[in-house]
Write a protein that binds this DNA or RNA. Sequence first.
DNA 1: GCTTAGGCTTGG
Length: 757
Amino acid sequence: MPVQKVNDSSDLDAKVPSHLQRTSITSLTMTSEPSHRCVKATVVHKGPVISCAQKDGIEMLRAEIKEEDPLQRTAEHTSINVIFFGTLAKDFSQSARQGDVVLLADFTIKKSPSFLRDKLHPCQLEMDGKDDFVYVCPSAGPSHGPSSSEAKYTYVPLNDLKPRTVVNVYGVVTFFKQPFPSKGSDYCSTLKITDQSDFKVGCNIFSKKLEDHPILFRVGDIIRLHRFKTDVFRDSMSLLNTFGWSTVTFDGTTDSPVVPRTSSKSFHFGESDIRTVQELRQWAANQSWISNDLKVSLSTVKPGMYFDLTCQLLAKAVMDSRCILLKVWDGTKCKHPLLNVAVASDALEGESTIVKDRMNLTANVLVYDNHLEMARELKPGTFLQFYNLHALLQRAPDQQPDQSEHLSFHLHGGTSYGRGLRSLPAESPALQSLKSVLEKHVDLDEYDEVNDGTLLEIWYTPPEAVVRTCEHNTRRLTLARVKRSTPPLSCHVRARVKKYKPQQLYQCLKLFCSNCKTMEDVPDDSAVAKVFRESAKDSQPCDEQWAATSSASSREPGRTISMHISRDMVGESTHMQLIFIEGTTLDEICVLSRDYKNLVPVRSVNSRMTLMDLTAPFLFSGDKRYYGCKQCSLNTFQNPVFTGVETWDEQAVAQALGVQLMQYRLLIQFELEDQTDTLEALLWENTERFFHVSAVDASGSQDLQDKIQTIMDTIQPPDSSLEERPWLDLCLSVYTVKDDDRNKVCYQITNTEIKEE
DNA sequence: GCTTAGGCTTGG
């Protein structure tokens, strides 16, 4: 179905078929049932139609939509990416514009591959146009808004202000300082505003509560002031908040949605406000003081400059009580070599920036004094706005005087020139261009090969916990890419362990029949002990022609313990290597197995020697117990042959008894994760090499089981956050198995070993 | 209670 247009937002609501239910973007999750849901939101960004090489050249378009309900403003994840495919992409590109309201239904909910970067929403919506349903309502015209009641407020143009009156005004912000502590009891915001009259008016706002201060991101933002007192100061009019005051601010970008920013839960906001904001935006766009304000990026910054920088925080470290280091990037490459402030990796919060450092993408910002309070709260990944940042050429401490100096950045103490920093919400229009630049780097780590030198830190991992042992030099892929690949395939990935199963590691020890491929858990001692108890009950020692028998009474009356040795072996050097034992408990045979090499527990059925139920081991050998496969073991015990064997081991015993020996194996299921996706991979055929532990040895050794636990604790430290877990360089095998006549794609970790010190 | 600031570069 092509994109449909309606003229009024309320018509959109009428288009919602009765079987569909409106859902808020905030509440969408990967497990949401999408088929009966629809969302209504404003287009805040519309990308170009691009042809996707990875999907056979299909055309696609990315748009970002935002929930329009202002009451949702403080909720997280009110914006989400929508990917349109095929003709729907072209259709949407022609029919919808930024600011339009859209109604979408029958979309697919996918995990957002860009969430770690854009922080928008953990999910994204995908629409391929088959049964999907897209309505667009153009933003032109007073079509929507929370309230259309008549204006209760009158706004005084800035050239009409009279001294000592209380007024409401609208203005475009030409200068501002983030709130700072005054010498009195309050925080103070200082700003200057102007309007179409071109009068400039200073304004001070005092409030103890930081959240009551206007939310200003940059010059050009629009502010509405209610109940401000006018006065004359140094021959100019000025404004001061007075009882009952409030402020609301708006982004100044023309054509972006008019979204009020305020901490106030109830405020008046109507269509006339939208009109006023749009008029001020239009007017300001043509004013030289704003249109000449070219944006400085790391690629255009010059040494000595004071400038505003929009960027993303990568990592941070406390230097001392008056200084915090923020490592940031804006996706552009600096023309001057950037100073790298070395910090111990354990003092750094956030990911290593080493690959971005190498590409001259990381700016080291030293934040001083009064700005620490703000900097301390910041989390890596946050989008940041610096005001009046100082670019300085500086020599690193270990640099020779003849080497070129490096560019560093200082956010000096004080608030002059509006100096400061603040975090920007992910959906801020001011971030659109930054995000699209960062997005280009995502493409690099999504699609490029390993060794092309343009890799992001996703590929970098100190310290190495594992090493690959494979000879092949196949491509390293992201997990998202692995999932899109067609098996069979070998590839390399860089990932961290999100989870693994079984959490009780002794359960990773399995019994595997190489004949019928059955795999089962190792029976626990209580089940085995029960088989022994039942076999020993009321039994008379068996009497076999081929065996020499000696018996002894047990401590329990009526229970006899018998030992049988093959007469064939008597006189041979091997005669004490294989002993059949009858009437013991599990504990007793365990004690005896310390002194005898191979003990086969047996029971008597009508005086004939018979193997025990194969739930129990058929052989005890030192610390080890060997099991037989219930399906594949032949019953050839009636006439056993014990000649011609030099050394009895579990293989020889199994063969003589007609038992199909089960092998010990180790099986662990990992949930791997990288920046693009998660994937479940088995450690199965390669487990022994991975841990440098043999499964059969581990079966009889607590030390070896502890070793496996210790290794697992290094690659997935208990209670660690994802950031604290090491990246693992893994070789993966992608293959298919038949599962109920359907091909299922499986992933196994191969050719990878733990690195031992 | 009714000041505070009223832009105007750190100096690491």
